[in-house]
Design a protein around this nucleic acid. Structure first.
Lengths: 218, 218
DNA sequence: CCAACTATATATAAACA
DNA sequence: TTGTTTATATATAGTTG
């Protein structure tokens, strides 16, 4: 009787060490990343846990996962870290989220500086006007350019932040991708989202595209 | 022949929805969190991936995982996101790490603004001096210091950042906890670190410190 | 909470589309 | 790089201590 050849050897045990074969490593990465995110999804659903994950592929491509969303988790920290203490960082053991605190501080600092800059500009304008009225010596080479540039940069920066914010929401699924970006929703269920998160620069090298949310795109 | 009663019903299938029983939910969380971190560990070893995870338990207690460390991963972004492009955010889809990009931008913007502020103040002082002297508008020495406040803020800010940075290192295990905090290193191997990450001043409540696991154990 | 233990649900290595 | 199939390695629910 002819025994049919096995169609598969089934799952083989593998040594817990770096997979040297590059292709195999990449395949393994894809599958296990999917598995990891699925586990995270289940954990958050079953236990009501809130989770944020960021993974860099062997090819240095970033992927992220968040529930309810990374945005939400970050906000939770910015709003006090769930410890009822929104000001003093008693035990700043938030790991990755320490960044949230830094961000908050920088934002405040930024706002403060912006205000001061504006004020300084106003003052200077006044003086300038005064001087001009008295002596008509306008057109000093250095100051005009510097300050106009400041405003432009400020505005473009503001704009960039807003876009970033919206994109983050889209990517993390806290907002439906109705902006023609291609969307950030990759799967998941029950309000959970899996997102690929290329940083920019070179993610167009190969076609890791199916997730295609870009920005004005490659 | 007496058949022994089964010692266990074995693993039962459970519905993918929130576990209502609080105790069961907490137990499930512990087991699955361990499993999730183990999966992350395997992924990083097998594929050379870099991973950062933050999880909030249903009891709102934070746990984190990082390879090589959250600190390292964060730095990678702050230093340019590993894309060799530290300035323009082409595709700002970094999820959690968008924060990193924002931080970078804000930092740069902060530096730029500070400079411009100084500049603006210097200019204003110049005008003022000119007005006071009511003389020509050619260059002249302007040693008026009006920007002390700016400098003070800058220094305190700098200090706060440094403290945060050090604490982050302690928390992620990249530096031994010699500061009496109670320690952030909880186990791990091969350069992998498992860290519990309580946020506030309450991380000493109980000793759920034993989330370690080994390969080959089961 | 943690450590077994058992029986079963799941994840996944290999090979191929 | 994703999807499918097969056979097997692992993760875990339920329970006990």
């Amino acid at each position: 009787m002819v025994r049919k050849k096995r169609q598969s050897m089934g799952r083989q045990k593998i040594a817990m060490k770096r997979i040297e074969n590059e292709e195999a490593r990449q395949v393994c990465f894809s599958k296990r990343r999917t598995g990891l995110f699925k586990k995270a999804t289940e954990l958050s659903i079953l236990c009501g846990a809130e989770i944020g994950i960021v993974v860099f592929s062997p090819a240095r491509k970033p992927f992220s996962f968040g529930h309810p969303s990374l945005d939400y988790i970050t906000k939770r920290f910015l709003d006090g870290g769930g410890n009822g203490n929104g000001v003093e960082v008693v035990g700043p053991y938030c790991g990755m989220f320490v960044e949230g605190q830094k961000l908050l501080q920088l934002n405040q600092e930024h706002a403060g500086l912006t205000e001061k800059l504006e004020e300084a500009r106003r003052m200077r304008a006044e003086r300038e006007a005064k001087v001009a009225a008295q002596q008509g010596c306008s057109g000093l080479p250095c100051d005009v350019e510097v300050h106009e540039m400041g405003i432009e940069e400020l505005e473009s920066f503001q704009k960039r932040l807003e876009i970033l914010c919206m994109d983050t929401k889209v990517a993390t699924g806290s907002v439906p991708p109705r902006f023609g970006y291609g969307g950030g929703y990759l799967g998941g269920y029950n309000g959970l989202y899996l997102t690929q998160a290329p940083i920019g620069g070179f993610y167009g090298h190969d076609q890791d595209i199916n997730m295609g949310f870009r920005f004005g795109d490659r």
